[in-house]
Each structure stands twice: as C-alpha cells, then as structure tokens.
C-alpha cells in the first residue's frame, strides 16, 4: 500500500467515525450552554438512528440516492421531538437534569426496539437500501494532493458536520441569540432581569441538541451500522458527551475532540491494514483511544469548567 493510499484510508475512515460525534457533541454544547445538562445524548442519537433507518427502509425505492440525506432530516425531526421530553422535564417541571437524561437513555432503546417489533415483527431491521457510502466533493477534489486526500472518496456527512461546527461557533459566540443562550447558562437570574425569556432559550438549547443528536444518530445508522437494533447506538452518545467536555463547551473544541476520537477509533478498525500497526496486538489498538483520552485530559487540559448555571434549574420568583 502506498503512503498516499494509506493516508487517504486513515483520513476517510477518521471522518466516517468522527461525523456522528461532531454533530452530537455540538448538540450537547448548545444544550449545556443554555444551562441544561444533557446526559441523554445517547438516547437522542438512538431515536435519530431509529427514525433514519425506518425512513430509509420505507422510501429508498422512491428517493434513490437522496434517501440518506433526507434520512438525516427524519432523524433530526424525531430527535427534536424526543428532546422535548428532556426540555419539558428540566425546564418546565424542574426535574433533576441527570435523572431526566437517564430517562431519555433508558427510554430510547426500549421505545426504538418496541416500535421495530411492532412495525417489522422482529428485534432488528433489514439492512438499509441506500447508505452514505463514499462521496467525492465536486470542485475541491480537483486540488492536487489535498483534494485526493480529503475530498475524494470521503464521508459526505463529515464535511457537513465540519461546516455545522463552524456555523455553530459563529452562532454561539457572534450572534445575539448565542449571547443570550450563554447568558441564561451562566446567570439565568441576571438574564431574566434583563427581560430575556429563560425558559424559551433553554427550550431552544435542548431542542438544538435534539436536532443535532438526532442527525448524529442518523449518520451512525446510515454510514456505519446500516440497520437498527438495540446495539446500533452503544456508547457513541457518551463519547460525544466526553467530546463536548473535552472541547470545553465550544463547538470548535468539540469538533477537534470528535476528530481525535474518530481517528483513534478508526485506527482500531483499520489498524490491521496498516503496515506499521499490523504487529501491534489488537487489544492495544482497541484501548489506545480511551487511554490516550484520559492521558491528554489529565496532563494537558486539567480542570474543565462548565457554564456556571449548567444543571441548575431556574425557578422564577413569583
């Protein structure tokens, strides 16, 4: 295998594994910036994956190659609806955020598999008809060397995710909405005094996490697992949560952390194909990403500071 081919294999599989984490960790960032801790990302991803697979199986015949992209939309819509449970519980009903998030995580696989059994009569679906596969970005693929590495036979959703990361950074740090969102996450009382609607902003934060988490799940389902079962989403949501914290509640940080996790996960998968890593026992490749994460976290990042009112319910004085 030539060096270029190797490099391009590593890059493309890194992007495939990073994409769902990027979407979801940015979703988590929106939620926690508004002050709502979201440990339910795992469950939201699960519902997104469920919706995308059902959509894909139902419409692949009519929609052809556009199906997986519209599947993202299906995942996003169901993700938003599902995240509303979390929003209602935490913002309106003053529930503990961890409890509500745990409910989301318990509920999602149960509901997903229950519905799959009702719809298809068995615990897991057939493989989907249209998946993301590998795409070539038109135009950019023509750039010498870089085009071949990054834009030929690459993951479409990953580039969308990177684009979303940029937009999200702009929204959170450069727009009025972002400033308001951050202010209710830091000091809801002050925000309320200035006339901001704390509840509405927190709802939008949580719903954005549902939107992006649902898309993240839909990406997993349509580019990695290719079907839906109870084991489609096992831990990616927690991984995304880790990426969010690692990225210090900043979309670009979350992007970087997700790419790092994606790279290390992909090395465990494709390691056997790479000459340098062929002789390393697979167990080291398997645990390396997680050990590395801990080491990096401990020695280079140290203390992370969440938004000040993250996880604190705001009870408006009557």
């Amino acid at each position: 295998m030539s060096f270029m081919a190797m490099l391009s294999l590593v890059i493309s599989s890194t992007l495939v594994y990073s994409a769902p984490l990027i979407f979801t960790s940015i979703g988590g960032t929106f939620s926690e910036r508004s002050g709502v801790v979201n440990v339910g990302l795992e469950g939201i991803m699960g519902m997104g994956a469920f919706a995308a697979v059902v959509f894909n199986l139902t419409f692949a015949g009519q929609l052809g190659a556009a199906t997986p992209w519209l599947g993202l939309l299906a995942g996003a819509i169901v993700g938003v609806l599902f995240s509303l449970i979390h929003a209602v519980a935490t913002v309106t009903l003053r529930a503990d955020h961890i409890i509500s998030g745990t409910v989301i995580n318990l509920m999602a696989p149960a509901l997903g598999v229950f519905l799959i059994k009702v719809l298809y009569g068995k615990g897991q679906t057939e493989s989907i008809g249209q998946d993301f596969g590998y795409a070539t970005v038109p135009g950019l693929a023509k750039i010498p060397v870089l085009g071949q590495l990054f834009f030929e036979k690459t993951s479409g959703p990953a580039w969308l995710a990177i684009f979303v990361a940029g937009i999200s950074w702009y929204i959170i740090f450069k727009t009025k909405f972002g400033l308001r969102l951050r202010s209710v996450g830091e000091n809801p009382q002050a925000a309320d005094t200035l006339g901001l609607n704390v509840a509405r902003l927190r709802y939008s934060g949580v719903m954005l996490s549902g939107l992006l988490g649902g898309i993240g799940g839909a990406v997993v389902a349509q580019s990695i697992s290719l079907n839906y079962s109870a084991s489609t989403i096992v831990g990616q949501g927690f991984m995304a949560m880790a990426a969010m914290i690692f990225g210090r509640w900043n979309p670009l940080g979350a992007l970087g952390a997700s790419l790092f996790f994606g790279l290390s996960q992909s090395l465990a998968v494709i390691g056997a194909q790479l000459p340098g890593l062929k002789n390393v026992p697979s167990i080291w490749l398997q645990i390396a990403p997680y050990v590395l994460t801990i080491i990096v976290l401990v020695f280079f990042f140290g203390k992370t500071r969440p938004p000040k009112a993250d996880g604190v319910n705001y009870i408006k004085a009557a």
């Binding site: 880790a242 167990i283 994460t293 992370t304």
Partner: peptide, 22 residues
C-alpha cells in the same frame, strides 16, 4: 488534576470492556 470524572469513567468503561474480553 481536576480531570472530569464523567469523561474518565466513560473511557474506563471501554477499557475494561476490551480488557475483560481480551
């Protein structure tokens, strides 16, 4: 070190899973 226990325990779940099977 102030390292978030949430991240560390999530990562350690994976480490123990793979180590146990191995």
């Amino acid at each position: 070190f102030g390292a978030s226990e949430v991240i560390v325990t999530i990562m350690m779940n994976y480490i123990f899973l793979f180590l146990g099977n191995n």
